[in-house]
Structures are given as C-alpha cells and as structure tokens.
Amino acid sequence: MSAFAFLGAALAEIAGCFAFWAWLRLGKSPVWIAPGILSLCLFAYLLTLPTSDQAGRSYAAYGGVYIASAVLWLWLVEDAKPDRWDLLGAAVCLIGAAIIYFGPRTATIG
C-alpha cells in the first residue's frame, strides 16, 4: 500500500507543480492553476496513507520515490532522455528511501 501511495503522491505532486510551471514558464493559460491546486491537494492526502509511525520518516522515504518519479517524468512527459547521472542519482535516492523506511528501529537514547 505504501509504495502505491508514494507513487501516486509523486505523480500528483509533479503534475501539480508542472501545471504551475506550464503557466509561469511555458506561457500556458492561468486555467492550468485549478487542476494544479487539486493535484497538489491529492498529493498531500496520498502522503498521509503510508504506514509509518512518524510523518518525517514517511516524508523522507517519499523523497527518494519523488526523485525517481521526477526523472521518469522528465523522460516520459518532457521527452528528455535521462542520462546515466540522472539514473544513478535516482537509484541512490531509492536505496536511501528504502533504508529510511524499512530499516529496523531500536529504542533511542535520550
């Protein structure tokens, strides 16, 4: 469930931000703002669904999924093929996200 929530959140966040990018940077109509806002609201909702006891840990793990999804968006939507550094960076981020999200937890000192 968490993986689907993270992927959905990434798509919603990227699409919402892209709507603003299209309006401000690509000269698209201000009408793009409304679906952008709705998409960003969906992103926020989806990010509440993963099963994590702490929001910060969930957000940190999501960051890796977001980065990999943004590279995929670059390729599929913007038609710009990722280079090896894009792919390596995304892979490192996904590994980091997995460590954060799935790492064993022990009692903290303090």
Rank of each mutant, 00 (worst) to 15 (best):
M1R: 11
S2P: 03
S2Y: 03
A3Q: 13
F4Q: 13
A5Y: 11
F6R: 01
G8A: 11
A10H: 04
A10D: 02
A10R: 01
L11K: 04
L11M: 11
L11G: 03
A12Q: 02
E13P: 02
A15T: 07
A15P: 03
A15W: 07
A15G: 04
C17Q: 04
C17P: 03
C17L: 11
C17N: 10
F18H: 14
F20Y: 14
F20N: 06
F20M: 11
F20T: 05
F20L: 15
W21V: 09
W21R: 07
A22L: 15
W23R: 08
W23P: 02
W23N: 03
R25D: 14
K28N: 08
V31K: 14
V31P: 04
V31R: 14
V31M: 15
W32I: 06
I33R: 07
I33D: 04
I33N: 06
A34S: 14
G36A: 12
L38E: 02
S39W: 10
L40R: 05
L40Q: 08
L40G: 03
L40S: 03
C41D: 11
L42K: 06
F43C: 11
F43G: 00
L47E: 03
L49V: 12
L49T: 10
L49R: 14
P50S: 12
P50I: 06
T51F: 11
S52D: 08
S52N: 08
A55W: 14
A55C: 09
G56F: 12
S58R: 02
A61G: 03
Y62M: 08
G63R: 07
G63S: 15
V65P: 00
V65K: 00
Y66N: 04
I67V: 15
A68R: 00
A68G: 05
S69Y: 02
A70N: 05
A70V: 03
A70K: 01
A70S: 13
A70H: 04
V71Y: 07
L72C: 05
L72E: 00
W73G: 02
W73N: 03
W73T: 02
L74D: 03
W75R: 05
W75H: 12
W75Y: 14
L76C: 07
V77N: 09
E78V: 06
D79A: 11
D79K: 12
A80W: 08
A80K: 15
K81W: 13
K81L: 14
K81G: 04
K81M: 13
P82R: 05
D83H: 14
D83K: 09
R84H: 11
W85M: 12
D86V: 10
D86A: 13
D86T: 08
D86W: 08
L87R: 11
L87Q: 10
L88Q: 12
A90Q: 01
A90K: 00
A90L: 06
A91N: 07
I95N: 04
G96V: 00
G96Y: 00
A97F: 01
A97V: 05
I99C: 15
I99T: 10
I100T: 08
Y101Q: 01
Y101R: 02
F102W: 15
P104Y: 06
P104A: 13
P104I: 07
R105T: 13
R105G: 10
A107P: 02
G110D: 10
G110M: 06
